[in-house]
Design a protein around this nucleic acid. Sequence first.
DNA 1: CCTTCGACGGCAAGCGGTTGCGGAACTCTC
DNA 2: GAGAGTTCCGCAACCGCTTGCCGTCGAAGG
Lengths: 326, 326
Amino acid sequence: MAVTIRDVAKAAGVHVSTVSRTFSAPNLVNAATRERVLAAAQRLDYRPNRAASALTTGRTHNLGLIVADIANPFFPPLIKAAQAYAREREYHVFVADTDEDPQAEEELIQTLAKQVDGVVLVAPRLTNLAIERLGMDLPFVVVNRRVKGLSAVLMDIGHGTEEAVEHLAGLGHRRMMLIGGPRASWSSEQMSRSGVAAAARLGVEMTVTGPNSPTEQGGVEASAAVLESGATAVIAYNDLVAIGVIEGLNDRGVDVPGAVSVVGVDDTVTGRLNRPKLTTIVMPTPAAGRTAVDLLLQAVAGGRTAAQATLETSLTVRDSTGPAPD
Amino acid sequence: MAVTIRDVAKAAGVHVSTVSRTFSAPNLVNAATRERVLAAAQRLDYRPNRAASALTTGRTHNLGLIVADIANPFFPPLIKAAQAYAREREYHVFVADTDEDPQAEEELIQTLAKQVDGVVLVAPRLTNLAIERLGMDLPFVVVNRRVKGLSAVLMDIGHGTEEAVEHLAGLGHRRMMLIGGPRASWSSEQMSRSGVAAAARLGVEMTVTGPNSPTEQGGVEASAAVLESGATAVIAYNDLVAIGVIEGLNDRGVDVPGAVSVVGVDDTVTGRLNRPKLTTIVMPTPAAGRTAVDLLLQAVAGGRTAAQATLETSLTVRDSTGPAPD
DNA sequence: CCTTCGACGGCAAGCGGTTGCGGAACTCTC
DNA sequence: GAGAGTTCCGCAACCGCTTGCCGTCGAAGG
């Protein structure tokens, strides 16, 4: 059917092993022969069959990328970057969506295992224990989570949160509220911790609410708590929540940023296009995707190293924050 | 290393071929032996190596899904649905992003070719000719494009556009404008055609502008033309453009939907969360993803059939359209 | 009791590459 | 000009699984 290494060998008048070597270990073959082989390969439009070589080498040149929900606007930039970066390194990537289901996640990993050299797990829903167990068999990199023995890339929301608090304090806000995300969210915890610390340092008041659904609806619901608290500035778990908060406040006749300032997190398209344009803590999702692939390839090549990368976040000021009302 | 068919065979006291058959052709093996094999497989946690079987059967149980830009909010729901649907059928999917580069697209297809049973091309940037040529070697399904000899799934924007025109006419609008997308866009053409026809039928005026960049910026730029034309209703190429138009109009002191009504296309999250919430022509992207995979699997199984599926679009009315001003 | 026939399962040759081993041909050295 | 080293390449086994072919065995038929 397709042209194989044997066809090339015949055409070039050499043994298949020579053809194989000209591709995988060119220095082992004489320059002249190499030319001949390459010419023949070119002529026949030969392309090595990765699956076949995987069989003997154990390297598939494929990666898995598992996310909770492809349609959540937080993920696509990460997927895009990871995939592009992998491709530059001659790796293809399976993208899979678990629909937030740990069961599906585990199954997916197991069926994927034989076909990939490693897996990137973004914000996994599995327990640490389960991940550790799976990690015995296959290199993993987790994003925004810490699992013993595995490489991780963490987006340090702490720094961005501090910047946000400083920004708001600088605008004269004295009572702030932080709207947390889902119960088990690592970044939600990080945010709370740094937000509270920064507020204390600056001598402003900070209350934390939550858990909340990480959606617009969650934001709408949380807006009541904002009003009750008397806060004039809000840092929301993500852009969607921030938009929900703004919507909820507007519905109650409260202007943003006139009466209350709102800060989001993630810097999604949706936030950028919102009216008012969202002031937001930018998550370096493309960098996270690239870094994850990078660490994964290192782990694949270098054996059991559990590296860690921490990426900084920072505040981008747009129109949803303004001076505190008098 | 990993547990293979041989380990299972040894454990069950049978030949490897028997093990193979209990998985790929269970009816050829006696129920009792089958039980024994399955028990052994279970005990050893055996999982067949797809890559290895692909080598002999020619079926990889993998699919490719190639899109122009993963980060464009139009694609993720399609990717998500395609991937989920494929997985139910025991297929994994490689997702790749061409970054709108035809060159990259072709290369991608070629390197992927050996590892997949077929490819879904969403809004490809390659020429029809190139696609046809590639289609000789590998089953393809194209989405929102028609290529001779290949299966296609088309989202018929025509119906939704008619609905939009009727909706606007019903609100009393008499001068409308249709803001087209990129030059070579199939759906942009469809829109124009049906929009103009519907307008003629209803006896209202319809002007078409374009080409425009399919982005917010493109919308902002087009907003000038809207004002000049004196149109009181606009149908934009997609939600992003619609948002841009609204922004451009607002910046010029024109209220939406007070003075001008705006309709988008796609029904993205971003449009749903916009203020005002976008009236939009809903593109059935999840269904398109599923259907594409469906047709692809048919083509993979059944040989060279070039089926076509047309999916309907329809209007969802929200807050960006209203009665024509007096 | 012998033939015929299914059903079952073992045998072995691949699928398309990779790779350790060893031999042939050269180059060097003394 | 023989021995030692190198370089290059062919040989063949193997990776994990599939599948056409054939032998065995028990049951059915005569």
